[in-house]
Design a protein around this nucleic acid. Structure first.
Length: 899
RNA sequence: GGACCCGUGGCUCAGCGGUUAGAGCACUCGGUUCACAUCCGAGGGGUCGCUGGUUCGAAUCCAGCCGGGUCCACCA
């Protein structure tokens, strides 16, 4: 490996009593990045790279907790883990130009500068398109470093040598080529269809971008007079509508074809109120017989359902509302009014005409634009559409046949549900910031001109040779470019080395809320353009809520991850977000969790400081590499125990990450580090507790265990672990002499001593019982007491010193006249001031519990369990029974002696 | 209207067929400040939403119900 920059001195020398993340984070990140640790090493034959794309954040946005969870919690954990496993790892960063969102953000900035706002419904601020785009680019230089800095703050091990922005010139070219190919293959078409239109943003948007809110409006019942006199007894045609202003654009009245009230009147004509137009009553199954009178006014120009009915019946489409929300000349007397005023005006007119039957409030769903919450105005416009069902088919199959696996599994159902009912995607947007649509229209012959790939912009119509061409003014939906991300960033359509090496990728981690927006579309476009899926695993995380918890002392609960990192460190935040959360589940984040994260990081730091101090005091004790398991006759039982437990932790933590159980990994890590390493082993490794002659063994064990722990924890908490690893490696060496934990190997589990672990576990239980007895008897913890172990205590002999040391006791085996208490089958007699009555009560209580347990065992083994359950399970139950019988016998004997 | 998810100690959540159900926080009690503006030790606290079913055995599987949430959908 090439020479790397030296680790930062500030980190090597940092030894604060409490871990201060800000003292090391920036130094470490800069060093990691400059050393090229995040860039995959040169290609090797037979390698299996791990490839992940960063779910590109919006360029103008700030990191929120969801990002922190996804990027810092899960993705970096996976990237670092796979890198440590020796897989060439590429985690590719970038940002999204974010179309309409970014345009709005920059417009606001510009309004501050220029003082004026859009006036005529176009995003001009008095600027030409070119001027406006120049401003956009100017602002991009402000925003890009900002969001990238935040990703670095999280510690994300991204390969910054491959960073991309969706609007980079080469990306624009790729999007253009994609459009042209899709057009030539017939996947893109231009059509007049009803679309969601936003009066505020002045653009169309897709179904996915439409939200629904519950609102209460007036429902007006309006009578449509018969066009010709009808026989006596013919009912009046009354429709119910919440949008009376659209009546002027009605081109039919629809009823359910099987509705007995109406079916005989299908084909008859009625007059549209106010406009007096004659329209037919038609039969269509889309009509809900239960709603209103069962008759529906059909306005194909301003309602999605009506548009579809209109298509089925060949109805004329009238547009009575324009793109700015004003009534058109087609609206007759309402022309010129805005849609709300027109509504009131229409109601008044209907009243005057005697056609308003009644009004009542109705609570219903209203569509709004997700970006600005403006009420949707469905309009019929010419738009570019992508034909989705054929693209969806292979993407459905890929998940169905397991080529792509979605975690959690149940999300696959959601995916299928949507994909199997997928509708065409309107891809054009009427804004300026985004990928241009590479289409020109001939003003003379209306020819639609789509140039060849990499051909210059056309200037002449190929059909009529006219030079009067008009470029399509629209841009593409921002998701159009991000759908290509996994292959476009690697060089597609060129067959680059990167593309060959890193496509298809491995995992795509993101929030379930963009499964349709992004994940599904990447699958479809990846298969379409590359003939292969873009990744094999989709890991979906849930939403992070902050509930009513106090997130900040000063403000409400809107605290940015950036602030949390500044205050508590990235490690604490990353750990806290992941700990105890299962895949796909929403989670509640709180100050308490962050605090726990901070304390855990600090705990690890102090374990490290202690271990380092011991190693520094006896550096000569480290004969071999620190990552080689210590051996030798000088190892104590405690050393052997923690070494075995460390291998157990390696096994378990590896298994959990392999199974994408990151929340459990974090919990298990804390459990091991805190309760086993810190609370038990570190106590036993302290010089004052070490048997003479075993000091070196403690140093070797501490160094090894610390090295393992640092590696095991590094994927989640990279900063504190790297700080300690660098300091440890400044004293001892590792077998591979890796310069950083980032490029060190993930541990492989070594040999365990199960029998020792079991006996030591028993010793810990005994210790706990002794401490409990002392407390019950109110003996000062510093006062030495005598303990006698009897019954089945033989296995505990090697741990006599440990038990003695951790309980401040003299321990011997056998004898003792204090009343015992049982731990499994071990009689523990703690010689504390006698309290005969108390002893008796305690023994009786213990006996009662022991009898209950014995009863359990007997009942269990007396049932069909013994015959039907697997042998191993029955065997275990038998052993338990024996233990419980011994316990009961012992307690009975003792009680008998007590009289 | 359809689909999906969740309902486990005060709070946030793990566990998802093997029998005295776990963690963190909070709480109670005792100690320490010689790795840890802390930390250590001990403890209390749960009929695992309800009702049935499958099974030798269910928090864990199935069905129904109740409660909470989310997504999709053309209810004017």
């Amino acid at each position: 490996m090439a020479t790397q920059p030296k680790p930062p001195q500030a980190v090597l020398q940092y030894r604060g009593k409490n871990f201060d993340a800000s003292a090391v984070e920036t130094f470490l990140y800069d060093w990691w990045e400059a050393s090229g640790f995040f860039t995959p090493p040169p290609e090797q034959p037979g390698e299996k790279p791990f490839v992940m794309m960063l779910p590109l954040p919006n360029v103008t946005g700030d990191l929120h907790l969801g990002h922190a969870l996804g990027f810092g919690g899960y993705e970096d954990l996976m990237a670092r883990w796979h890198r440590m496993r020796g897989e060439p790892t590429l985690w590719l960063p970038g940002s999204d130009h974010a179309g309409i969102i970014a345009q709005i953000v920059v417009e606001k900035e510009l309004a501050k500068e220029y003082g004026n706002r859009r006036t005529d419904g176009s995003p001009t601020l008095g600027l030409t398109r070119e001027e406006f785009l120049a401003e956009m680019w100017r602002w991009m230089e402000h925003y890009k470093p900002r969001i990238y800095k935040q990703l670095r703050m999280l510690g994300c091990s991204l390969d910054w040598t491959r960073v991309h922005f969706t609007m980079d010139p080469d990306m624009q070219r790729r999007v253009r080529i994609h459009f042209i190919r899709m057009y030539r293959k017939g996947h893109l078409y231009r059509a007049d269809r009803i679309v969601h239109w936003c009066l505020t943003c002045q653009t169309t948007y897709s179904d996915l971008e439409a939200l629904h809110v519950v609102r209460t409006d007036q429902l007006s019942y309006v009578r449509y007079p018969w066009a010709t006199p009808m026989p006596e007894g013919t009912p009046d045609v009354i429709v119910a509508t919440t949008r009376p202003e659209t009546i002027v654009a009605d081109t039919a009245v629809a009823v359910h074809p099987e509705d007995p009230r109406w079916k005989d009147l299908i084909g008859k004509d009625v007059l549209v109120p106010v406009s007096e137009r004659k329209v037919k009553i038609i039969g269509d199954e889309a009509v809900d017989r239960e709603f209103g009178t069962g008759a529906l006014k059909v306005t194909p120009g301003h309602d999605a359902t009506d548009f579809e009915i209109g298509q089925r019946h060949g109805l004329q489409v009238l547009s009575a509302i324009d793109t700015r929300g004003y009534m058109t000349p087609a609206a007759g007397p309402l022309a010129g009014l805005d849609r709300d005023t027109a509504r009131t005006a229409m109601v008044t007119r209907l009243k005057d005409l005697g056609l308003l039957v009644r009004q009542e409030p109705i609570t219903h769903n209203v569509g709004i634009h997700d970006r600005c919450e403006t009420v949707d105005e469905p309009l019929v416009m010419k738009q570019w559409w992508m034909r989705m069902p054929p693209l969806a088919k292979p993407a459905i199959e890929a998940v169905r046949n397991g080529t792509v696996r979605i975690i959690p599994k149940y999300q696959e159902k959601v995916y299928f549900e949507w994909m199997e009912n997928i509708r065409d995607w309107p891809v054009s947007r009427q804004i300026w910031w985004g990928h241009e649509i590479p289409v020109w229209y001939c003003r003379d012959c209306n020819e639609v001109i789509v140039p060849d790939e990499d051909a210059p912009d056309p200037t002449t119509c190929p059909t009529c040779r006219s030079n009067d061409l008009k470029k399509d003014p629209d841009v593409l939906d921002t998701w159009f470019s991000s759908a290509l991300w996994p292959h476009s960033t690697l060089g597609w359509p060129e067959r680059t080395k990167d593309l060959a090496r890193f496509y298809p990728g491995s995992v795509l981690e993101t929030g379930y809320d963009i499964l349709f927006f992004w994940v599904a579309r990447m699958l479809m476009m990846g298969i379409e353009n590359m003939g292969d899926v873009p990744f094999h695993v989709v890991y979906l995380h849930g939403l992070v809520r902050t509930g009513n918890q106090k997130m900040s002392k000063s403000k409400g609960n809107v605290v940015s991850p950036v602030e949390m990192i500044e205050e508590h460190g990235a490690d604490a935040l990353r750990y806290a977000l992941v700990n105890g959360v299962s895949a796909g589940a929403d989670s509640e984040f709180s100050e308490g969790k962050l605090e726990n994260g901070r304390r855990f990081v600090n705990k690890l730091w102090n374990i490290g400081r202690f271990a380092l101090a011991q190693v520094e005091a006896r550096p000569e004790a480290l004969a071999g590499p620190i990552d080689q398991a210590p051996a030798g006759t000088d190892l104590t039982e405690a050393d052997r125990w923690i070494l075995s437990r460390t291998e157990a932790a390696v096994e378990e933590l590896t298994r959990l990450i392999e199974h994408y159980q990151f929340g459990e990994y974090a919990t298990a890590l804390q459990q091991f580090v805190w309760t086993e390493v810190a609370d038990v082993y570190v106590e036993l490794a302290k010089p004052q507790r070490r048997p003479a002659g075993s000091e070196d063994a403690a140093v070797r064990t501490l160094a090894y265990v610390l090295d393992r722990v640092l590696r095991l924890a590094h994927p989640s908490i990279p900063f504190v672990t790297e700080t300690l690893a660098l300091q440890l490696r400044a004293i001892g060496r590792t077998s591979d002499a890796a310069p950083s934990l980032v490029v060190s190997a993930w541990p492989k589990p070594g040999a365990r001593d199960a029998a020792l672990e079991d006996r030591f576990g028993l010793a810990i239980e005994v210790i706990r019982r002794i401490r409990e007895r002392r407390q019950e008897a109110d003996v000062d913890p510093r006062t030495k007491v005598r303990v006698a172990l009897g019954g089945d205590a033989e296995a505990l002999r090697p741990f006599a010193d440990i038990i003695a040391s951790l309980t401040t006791a003299d321990v011997r085996f056998g004898g003792g006249d204090a009343a015992p208490t049982l731990v499994r089958a071990v009689e523990v007699r703690v010689d504390v001031p006698r309290d005969t009555a108390g002893d008796r009560a305690r023994l009786e209580k213990e006996l009662e519990e022991a009898l209950k347990l014995l009863e359990h065992s007997r009942t269990l083994l007396g049932s069909d369990f013994a015959k039907r359950a697997p042998a191993a399970v029955v065997e275990k139950a038998r052993a338990t029974l024996a233990e419980r019988e011994a316990a009961v016998a012992s307690l009975k004997a003792e009680l008998g002696r007590a009289g």
